[in-house]
Amino acid sequence: MGSLAAPFDKGSAVSAPVLRTERLEKRFGGIVATDSVSLSIAPGARHALIGPNGAGKTTLVNLLTGVLPVSAGAVYLDEVDITRLPVHRRVARGMVRTFQISQLFRSLSPRETLALIVGQQRGLGRRWWGSLAREASVIERADQLLEQFRLASVRDVRTDQLAYGKRRLLEIAIALACEPRVLLLDEPVAGVPAGEREEILQTLAALPAQVSILLIEHDMELVFGFSRFITVLVNGSVLAEGEPAAIAADPRVKAVYLGSGAGHTP
């Protein structure tokens, strides 16, 4: 099912953000993990979310996708309030994520995985007869994704037998199989060995331009090479926002990163 929610036309010259949060808050007991975060992702964005370890980046992704319930505030997708929507309904509305630690279907092969997701995406998920093998267009799309993500050579290997780099590629391919309009990438190159890194960077660069992307990443080289807008999260709240050059020059950001000793800004 495509997008149910047609974007509101506000008649303004500035296009409305596809994804927006309003004073989002998450508390675990006494600890505030996300503190009044208001974020706005423009259509076709290449938006990066950075911050030191424990800044609450993954918590924020979990709030956006509905894995965790929010304590206060709201999330809007195409200006429709989705704060209380369950995870799978958000996916149906076009917001898809990848995971920091690959979450694959262990007993299936990449081809089976992608075919089943494409099938689900095309509304076959509730059909209790027939076989995916007979759905030519589903298989075609799955094979196309396998090519695009350089998985064709391992398409029939069980995913729990795949090499680490291939697992990361499949992780992104799975997200793309969901036909996202908003894609949240949670540390796509984390832990990938140098040899396999380039392959992933290339596929990231080749993602369709109309897909709005929020990239959560530690790797500053990737962040500054990929994004056109950066939000810095520290201790659960937004420290700074702006274009990469402005962020790189921001003394507060420098302080945070030099303080934690993880800074290799360009």
Binding site: V87, H88, F99, L116, I117, R126, S131, L132
Partner: peptide, 24 residues
């Protein structure tokens, strides 16, 4: 063996991921 059955396998293997690809 149907598309529905495929989504069942997905849920069994990894419910977190299954929800994240839109499977209820």
């Amino acid at each position: 063996r149907s598309p529905l059955g495929a989504t069942l396998l997905a849920v069994r293997d990894n419910p977190l991921r299954a929800a994240a690809v839109g499977i209820p």
